[in-house]
Design a protein around this nucleic acid. Structure first.
Lengths: 153, 153
DNA sequence: CCTGAAAATACCTAGAG
DNA sequence: CTCTAGGTATTTTCAGG
């Protein structure tokens, strides 16, 4: 678990984009033998650099035409509003991301829904019904300029 | 390219989480034969439902300890500021996501950097040096409550 | 859509540099 | 720590029903 050398970074960079390459092809693209490459790959997983593999899906083709960001402000009078909100959000399948931020609001929520009507339901029935939610600001995405870019290794 | 049935959705759901399962294991988990499953998988890729496969990496272990969101407001006097900004952002490896939004600002930028000093450099030397950037608001993430959640198929 | 085979490919171990 | 090489196990693929 010391440090990553040039080959490790190369492996990670390739795997970020082509998650399904075989060990032999990966080996020739990084310039090592399949055996060594396989060992490095296993080590990178064991040490937690690689947390998993997944397919990239096209949200628009799957009925998620609308991407929305929501800024959430909480009522900080109750003690454990933050934990409660965080746990509730983790259980919502519509929420793809949620981050606690420092600045003008408390949480930034990223969600994908079918359309504005669906989002209206999500906001009213689910998000605003949570205890402690004092205010929300909705920002609908008009154009996804860049999305799911790989980490610059 | 008609519609997705229950099996297709099951395949996509599994592949989102386990992008490297073999066709035979995928087959027994969805309850079809390997042959049929392989054909469906190929079709889902050809029709664009699956856009690719990738490894999920741990940003914190790779030197990206700080996640930051930036709201950007543009100077709308020049005609093509939007296109210029969008193209510049696409070429920045530090920027993981960028979306044009409707509401109080123009673009929402998601970036990962090593620390606050790195972000300071990114903001001053790169983002603010772009023509047409009138104002930015920075929100540093204190806790990543939820991240890269799969689409709820 | 399934079964059953063949063909290809992958992984794993052993042993040398 | 890395490579070469062979044997083993899987997987994929292509028949035909």
């Amino acid at each position: 678990m010391t440090e990553l050398d040039k080959f490790d970074r190369r492996i990670l960079a390739i795997l970020q984009v082509d998650g399904r390459v075989s060990t032999v092809e990966l080996a020739e693209r990084v310039g090592l033998s399949p055996t060594t490459t396989g060992e490095r790959l296993r080590r990178l997983q064991k040490d937690g650099y690689i947390t998993g593999f997944g397919a990239r899906l096209d949200p628009h083709r799957l009925g998620f035409g609308l991407l929305v960001f929501v800024e959430v402000l909480l009522d900080k009078t109750t003690p454990d509003v933050f934990d409660k909100f965080a746990q509730a959000v983790r259980d919502m399948p519509e929420v793809l991301e949620c981050h606690m931020v420092a600045g003008g609001f408390d949480y930034l929520v990223k969600t994908r829904v079918a359309d504005m009507a669906s989002y209206r339901r999500f906001l009213g029935d689910i998000l605003l019904s949570l205890p402690g939610v004092r205010e929300t600001r909705t920002y609908a995405v008009m154009e996804e300029v860049k999305n799911d870019s790989p980490l610059p290794l």
